[in-house]
Write a protein that binds this DNA or RNA. Structure first.
Lengths: 139, 139
DNA sequence: TCGCTTGATTTGATCGATTCACGATAAGCG
DNA sequence: CGCTTATCGTGAATCGATCAAATCAAGCGA
């Protein structure tokens, strides 16, 4: 089979290494994993690597624009592969679960806000904090 | 003169102490200061306090609902006194400057997104990342 | 007004996440 | 196949924030 991830890495000028492919594979299964989560997933797969290396790989992938880094308040940085579309996140304040949210406005969500004079908006980070279905209090 | 801040503290069931009044005063001058910024501002005023105490005070004020804590990506936690209205923030990715942004939608900004089934939205955190007027590249 | 009770502050240690520095390793090219 | 250089792995170090125990003072009642 062809390796689309490998091709993707080459396109961005990055070398194709086993560690990077493994991290990308983990992010396919865990779409909102943090650095420690990626490391644990790799360890479960039998790969021996260090948390620092995971940080290193994630940093490279982020710099190359292959993954996106976002930091929910009160949580470690998380990484995801969904880029290009500017979607939001719903974070459960009870269990920490993260879900994607597509804004109905479309690609440029909430960009219609009154930005300060001269401010150039590069990206909008929108996070909804609340309770997911599993953690919703019994009514 | 009366001390509205002191009255505010009593209303929330907190004791009125010099440290808390000082922190609130700093947040009036620096509307988006982080813990270290508050500590430095207090030091400039001649007050002798530790960074840990500032964290403690800010934590108390946050728990009491007097100040709001928000954490821009790639930055330390910041605190502000503007609460009640649900405004957003514009963060300059170059100089780190933070400005308030009033969303045109009103009090419940961007709440019209498609939340996951069963998800109860408690709060929406919206952050615009970009370049402020001072840091905008010369065109 | 004085003293007591309890909350608040201080100090120092500690933790978690991330970054930095450098030697070891392997990817990719000729 | 061998070289060059980006990448990985190991360890230490940093930064922000939290925790725990001892000291201190705000605000109550006598």
């Amino acid at each position: 089979m062809t390796e689309p991830d490998a091709e993707l890495l080459r396109t961005r000028g990055l070398r194709v290494t086993q560690g990077r492919l493994a991290v990308l594979g983990v992010l396919d299964r865990l779409p909102h994993a943090d650095a420690d989560g990626v490391h644990r997933a790799l360890a479960d797969d039998g790969a021996e690597t260090s948390v620092q290396s995971v940080h290193n790989v994630l940093g490279d992938l982020t710099a190359a624009g292959i993954v996106r880094r976002f930091e929910p308040a009160r949580s470690a940085a998380r990484y995801e592969r969904r880029i290009g579309d500017n979607h939001h996140h719903a974070v459960c304040s009870s269990c920490g679960r993260v879900d994607d949210v597509d804004c109905v406005v479309g690609e440029a969500p909430c960009m219609h806000a009154d930005a300060p004079a001269g401010f150039t908006v590069q990206a909008a980070e929108v996070t909804f904090v609340g309770l997911c279905a599993d953690c919703a209090p019994a009514t």
